[in-house]
C-alpha cells in the first residue's frame, strides 16, 4: 500500500465519520438544549423517525429537498409543543412520557409509510456541496469541505448554540431555570415560556436530525433510525450539556464507527470478530469519558417539574 493511497483512505474514513456523526450531533444538540432548561426527553428517536418520514414523503411528493427539511423540523416543533404541554402544564413524568413519544413515533412513522408509500421508493439525496476554495485544498478539502449542506448546518449550529447559551439573555435564562427555577422565577424569568421554547426548539432539531438522515440516505423504511435517538441522548451526557462537548461525543462515536468499517473492509479485523468490532463505538465512548473524567454536574432541576410556590 503506497502512501498516497493510505492518505486517501484516512481522508475517506474521517469524512465518513463526520457524515455518521451528523444525525447524532443534531439530535444531541436539541436534547442538550431541553435538558439545560431542566427537561429530559427520552422520545428523541420517535421524533427523529417522524421527522424522517415527513421529510421523505415531502420530497417524494415535491422533489424539493428543502421542503423536506422544513417538514422534518415542523413535525419536530409540533411534537415539541405537545411534549412541552404534557410535561410542563400537566407535569407528566418525563421519563415515561418520553418513552411514550418514542413508541408513538416508532409505530406511527411505520404506519404512515405503509399506508402512503408501501414499497420503499428512493428519493434523490443532497449532492455534496463543495465549499469554494476550501474544498480544493489537499486532504482537508475532501475531508471537511465536500459534504452535503446538512453536515455544514449541523456543525455550524455548534458555535451558534454556544453563543446563544453563554452570550445571550435567553441562554442565561435557560441555564438559570435548569439550575434553580425558583430563583430565576423570582427574578422575573418566565420558567414556563423559556422551557416551552427550549423544548420546542430541541424537538425541532430532533425532527431535523431525522429529516437529515432520510434525505442523506435517500430512503425511508421501518425504524430507519435504528435507535440513534437513544445514542444521541447518551452523547448529551458525554458532552456534559455543552454544544462543544456534544460535538466531540458525536465525532468520537461516528469516527470509531467509520474506522471499524474501514478496518473490516481491509480485513484488518477478521470476519469472525466482526460483532466484537461493532462494540467498539459504544465501548470507546464510555472509556473516553472515563479517561477524561470531568467533574461535571447535571442541571440541578433536570426532570423536576416546576410549580410556582410549590
Amino acid at each position: 500500500m503506497n502512501d498516497s493511497f493510505a492518505v486517501m483512505i484516512i481522508v475517506a474514513t474521517i469524512a465518513s465519520g463526520i457524515r455518521l456523526a451528523t444525525p447524532f450531533l443534531l439530535a444531541s444538540l436539541g436534547e442538550a438544549l431541553g435538558q439545560r432548561s431542566g427537561v429530559l426527553n427520552l422520545g428523541v428517536d420517535g421524533v427523529m423517525l417522524l421527522g424522517a418520514f415527513g421529510a421523505y414523503y415531502m420530497v417524494l411528493q415535491t422533489n424539493n429537498l428543502y421542503y423536506g427539511l422544513l417538514v422534518g423540523i415542523g413535525l419536530g416543533l409540533i411534537i415539541g409543543l405537545f411534549y412541552a404541554f404534557i410535561t410542563l402544564n400537566l407535569r407528566a413524568e418525563q421519563g415515561v412520557s418520553g418513552i411514550g413519544i418514542y413508541l408513538f413515533g416508532l409505530g406511527m412513522s411505520d404506519l404512515l409509510f405503509q399506508k402512503f408509500v408501501g414499497t420503499p421508493r428512493p428519493i434523490l439525496p443532497f449532492m455534496p456541496l463543495d465549499i469554494p476554495v476550501l474544498s480544493g485544498l489537499p486532504i482537508v478539502g475532501e475531508m471537511l469541505f465536500q459534504h452535503s449542506i446538512i453536515v455544514y448546518i449541523a456543525f455550524a449550529l455548534v458555535p451558534v448554540m454556544s453563543f446563544v447559551l453563554h452570550r445571550t439573555t435567553y441562554g442565561l435564562n435557560i441555564r438559570a431555570i435548569g439550575e434553580n427555577p425558583e430563583a430565576a422565577d423570582s427574578l422575573g424569568v418566565s420558567v414556563m415560556a423559556t422551557r416551552y421554547s427550549a423544548i420546542i426548539i430541541g424537538n425541532g432539531l430532533a425532527g431535523l436530525a431525522g429529516a437529515a438522515l432520510a434525505i442523506e440516505l435517500g430512503i425511508f423504511q421501518q425504524n430507519l433510525t435504528n435507535a440513534m435517538g437513544f445514542i444521541a441522548i447518551a452523547l448529551v451526557y458525554f458532552g456534559a450539556w455543552s454544544p462543544k462537548g456534544v460535538m466531540i461525543g458525536s465525532l468520537v462515536f461516528g469516527l470509531v464507527q467509520a474506522i471499524v468499517l474501514q478496518c473490516k473492509t481491509f480485513g484488518v479485523i477478521p470476519r469472525s470478530a466482526s460483532d466484537l468490532a461493532a462494540m467498539a463505538p459504544a465501548i470507546i465512548t464510555i472509556l473516553a469519558l472515563v479517561v477524561v473524567a470531568k467533574r461535571f454536574k447535571q442541571p440541578a432541576a433536570l426532570t423536576k417539574p416546576y410549580v410556582r410556590g410549590g
Partner: peptide
Amino acid sequence: IALNGLIVV
C-alpha cells in the same frame, strides 16, 4: 406500537 405509545403518554 403507536397506540401503546399514546396510551403511555
